[in-house]
Computed example of a mutant assay.
Amino acid sequence: MPSTWFITGTSTGFGRLLVEELLGRGDRVAATLRKPEALDDLQAEHGDRLWVGRLDVTDTEQVRKVVDDAFQELGTIDVVVNNAGHGVFASVEEATDEQIRQVVDTNLMGSIHVIRAALPHLRAQGRGRILQVSTAGGQATYPNFGYYHASKWGIEGFCETVAREIAPFGIGLTIVEPGATPTGFGGSLATAPIMPEYENTPAGDVRRALADGSFTLPNDPRKIAKAMIELVDTGAVPLRLPLGSDTYRDVRAALVARLAEHDEHREVALSVERD
Rank of each mutant, 00 (worst) to 15 (best):
K223Q: 11
D97Q: 12
R249E: 13
D275M: 03
D59K: 05
F14W: 02
T32H: 11
H113E: 12
E93A: 15
R16H: 12
L122S: 02
T12H: 05
G157W: 09
S134T: 15
D48A: 07
R127L: 00
R123P: 03
T4I: 06
G187T: 08
Q99V: 15
A254P: 03
Y147S: 05
D212P: 11
S134P: 09
G15M: 01
A118Q: 01
P168L: 10
V268Q: 14
V256Y: 00
D212C: 11
E273V: 06
E93D: 15
S245P: 00
D40V: 04
D41Q: 12
A190D: 13
D246I: 06
E20L: 08
E73V: 11
R49G: 00
D105T: 03
V272Q: 14
V251K: 00
I171K: 13
H86W: 06
S11W: 04
E156H: 02
R274L: 15
I229V: 14
A150N: 05
R116W: 02
P178G: 08
L50D: 03
R129L: 04
A167E: 11
Y148T: 12
F169M: 00
E93S: 14
L39M: 10
D250K: 14
R34I: 01
I175C: 08
T183I: 09
R34V: 02
V232K: 01
T135F: 01
E273G: 06
L22D: 10
R129G: 09
H265Q: 14
H149G: 10
F185G: 10
R164E: 15
S151Q: 10
W51D: 07
